[in-house]
Design a protein around this nucleic acid. Structure first.
Lengths: 235, 235
DNA sequence: CGTTGTGTTGACTGCACTCAACAATTGTGG
DNA sequence: CCACAATTGTTGAGTGCAGTCAACACAACG
């Protein structure tokens, strides 16, 4: 079988062992087959269109997954963090490029070893299928955002998405490791619009900005109302 | 295991037997468990947020899969045709609504029976995983379209996507069973912009329109250039 | 401490949206 | 089968939200 997982959010994110070949997320990866790789901020890990040889799991740091067009326009598909996986798409070439945003440590598995493992133990495919479906649901929500939401609604949705912890809870403070350009390219906006919207949210008391990369969500209720497209009334 | 396939394009589309419980796309569905259901144009088959009891396979006709916001804004996630499947998302509620566009015939499987079948034969999950990944790749391409392409580029991409046959080939003539509103809500545009763009394509000789629902792609080369974001020069 | 990259703010523009009228097509009842 | 109504699609005029261009502010870094 040729597997083809592209990218998926793990539902945990606290496996700090150097080579966690043990089960996690119900996924029993072959132990000892992966090697640890480091990437500096901005470094390219995977290039869209390249043949696929490896499969990656992020141990620490953040990467951006994106597609781009000839003239340089870019759509950031997703940001992946510790515990997330990407890069296994059997039949095709890489559908997305991947670059490190912060310093990143990841484990690289040979593609063949993963495919072989699944061939040996077909029950491995179940959790993989779950991951792919979860990622698909995220993608569908993002399509609604890109196709039909206003700039303010996009930023509010983005902040709430980031605030959603691995346990399902909602953090009130969060860190944005990515640049304004990354955010803009993720939300289908420009850096100026992202910046202006952050400022407006700050002025209206929806958020606090501490430095460029730390946000506190002061009014989660109103952010959620905005994200869902309800009319924003005075408060 | 709780499976959670949302929607997926089959890669065939010519199974006309009333109850094709036989393997197709490598998927061996339990024979005899599904019942045939018909839906008139406009009829709702699944409502976003409802609990999930069934899993569907389309025998004939076209449906639209969409998400919507409180104020009525709508994002059509995908159009599904004969051979495509949708509706199996184990843990959650329905992430999308589904409505018939044309008269539709489908097979409805009880969710439990599918889950049981996968539990019995774990190797069924492999092809399901493949389907989910293929759908994910489509979703990623559509995110690029929604986030970063102009109206003309979106329409060109849409026509080429529809023209892509199940065998990988490119049809020159194709039928659009959906309305302009459906197209607009799929591409993140308005009906007026869709209409104007079709007209412009007709005037510049890119396409021919025969009635409202039949299109012939006269200049596939230029459509493809447009879709990929290359500069449209005079021709 | 200067240099460079990143973020913010302002002024103006333009592409797609809105509002509106009209045309074509489909559906329905006489 | 035709007349009418309802729905869907097209075209035009004007608007506005987010984009573009440009200047400035701030932070990170050597």
């Amino acid at each position: 079988m040729a597997t083809s997982l592209i990218a998926a959010k793990g539902n945990g994110g606290t496996s700090h062992r150097p080579h966690p070949g043990q089960p996690r997320d119900g996924l029993a990866w072959p132990a000892g087959l992966g090697i640890t790789v480091n990437a500096r901020p901005g470094q390219t890990i995977v290039i869209e269109g390249d043949p696929i040889d490896h499969f990656y799991r992020i141990l620490s740091g953040t990467v951006r997954l994106y597609k781009s067009i000839a003239d340089g326009r870019r759509q950031v598909i997703d940001f992946l963090n510790e515990g997330d996986v990407f890069g296994l798409t059997g039949l095709d070439r890489q559908p997305c490029s991947v670059e490190a945003i912060s310093s990143v440590t990841l484990i690289r598995y040979p593609r063949r070893s993963i495919e072989a493992a699944i061939e040996m133990q077909p029950e491995l495919a179940g959790p993989l299928f779950e991951l792919a479906c979860a990622e698909l649901r995220r993608a569908q929500r993002h399509m609604l955002l890109l196709g039909r939401k206003t700039a303010e609604e996009r930023i509010a949705s983005f902040l709430l998405e980031l605030a959603r912890g691995s346990d399902g809870g909602l953090r009130r403070t969060l860190r944005l490791p990515m640049s304004r350009l990354d955010i803009a390219d993720h939300l289908g906006l420009t850096i100026e619009t992202v910046s202006r919207t952050f400022t407006r949210f700050r002025r209206t008391g929806l958020i606090e900005l501490h430095g460029r990369h730390d946000v506190r969500l002061s009014r989660i209720d109103r952010l959620r109302a905005l994200a869902e497209g309800e009319i924003a009334d005075a408060a």
